[in-house]
């Protein structure tokens, strides 16, 4: 092929990639702008601090907002330690065998299961079998199961990426395996594990299907005060307002406002995580 034609081809591909990227950015910006434009008018201090009133046609979103935060907390409190420890087992202890491979396969498959299936599982297992009822606990644990593969996968990758050198150095000083993992391997892998956790929070905050059957309430007059009470959650609240309300058109601003708050919540959690990770990395490098 001649040099000019190769050059032309290169230009075409470059132009194509740039326009694709521009399209994606425009699309995202469009969605964001649309939400902000429609939702901003609804936002106020009262909107954030007042519970919904008058059959949810007025008032704020205090209850679902706190409910979502509670769900995130329960889900992560379950999924983070379990996920990380599973990964530690897989990376540090498990020998390559049938059991390990099955376990890995199971974790990978879990990631591909539709979220509604988790909802049904949560309903039958947490709500019915364990008798937690439709509650914050059941919904949180279900969400935890949903993001477990994300955390396990990210943690496994992070742990495997810790250089063998660090382990060698630790063992060579007479450290036990657990000391080595706790004091060297986990700290070194922590920033990357955090990345997985951040992604998981995003999913937990946004999912609707798993919580409908397990603990998300159509309406509760107040914030859940125990793990066994049902909670309202932002995504389900949006669904309810948009489909089941008595005055769907009247509540449009509230719907968009809620969407905007959910978006900000997810972005906010992500941002905090990213900043924290950056700080950790800074401390370790220079």
């Amino acid at each position: 092929m001649s040099i000019p034609s190769r050059r032309a081809k290169d230009r075409i591909v470059t132009a194509l990639l740039y326009s694709l990227m521009a399209a994606v950015i425009l699309l995202l910006a469009g969605v964001l702008a649309f939400i902000v434009k429609n939702g901003l008018s609804a936002l106020s201090w009262d909107f954030l601090t007042q519970p919904p009133r008058d059959a949810m046609t007025r008032g704020g979103i205090y209850t679902p907002l706190i409910g979502s935060i509670q769900l995130i907390a329960v889900a992560m409190a379950f999924a983070f330690p379990v996920g990380v420890l599973t990964a530690v087992y897989l990376v540090e202890w498990a020998r390559d065998g049938l059991f390990t491979r099955t376990l890995r396969l199971a974790v990978r498959s879990l990631a591909g299961v539709p979220s509604v299936v988790f909802g049904l599982f949560g309903l039958s297992f947490f709500v019915v079998v364990l008798g937690f009822g439709a509650s914050l606990l059941s919904a949180g644990l279900t969400l935890g199961c949903l993001v477990l593969p994300v955390i396990v996968g990210a943690s496994e990758a992070a742990l495997s990426a810790v250089p063998r050198d660090y382990r060698d150095a630790s063992y060579a000083m007479g450290a036990t395996k657990w000391q080595t993992i706790r004091k060297v391997v986990l700290p070194a892998a922590f920033p990357s594990i955090l990345t997985g956790a951040i992604l998981a929070v995003g999913r937990v905050a946004g999912e609707t299907a798993p919580i409908i059957f397990t603990g998300a309430a159509f309406f509760t007059p107040r914030v859940a005060r125990s793990l066994l009470e049902p909670v309202m959650a932002l995504p389900y609240h949006i669904l309810v307002l948009a489909t089941a309300g008595t005055a769907i058109d009247e509540t449009r601003p509230i719907q968009y406002g809620t969407v905007l708050v959910l978006l900000v919540l997810v972005l906010g959690v992500t941002l905090v995580g990213v900043l924290f990770r950056a700080k950790l990395r800074m401390e370790k490098r220079r």
Partner: peptide
């Protein structure tokens, strides 16, 4: 033991 590549912990 001291290793081939310097391997201080981060």
């Amino acid at each position: 033991m001291v290793f081939q590549r310097p391997n201080p912990f981060p």
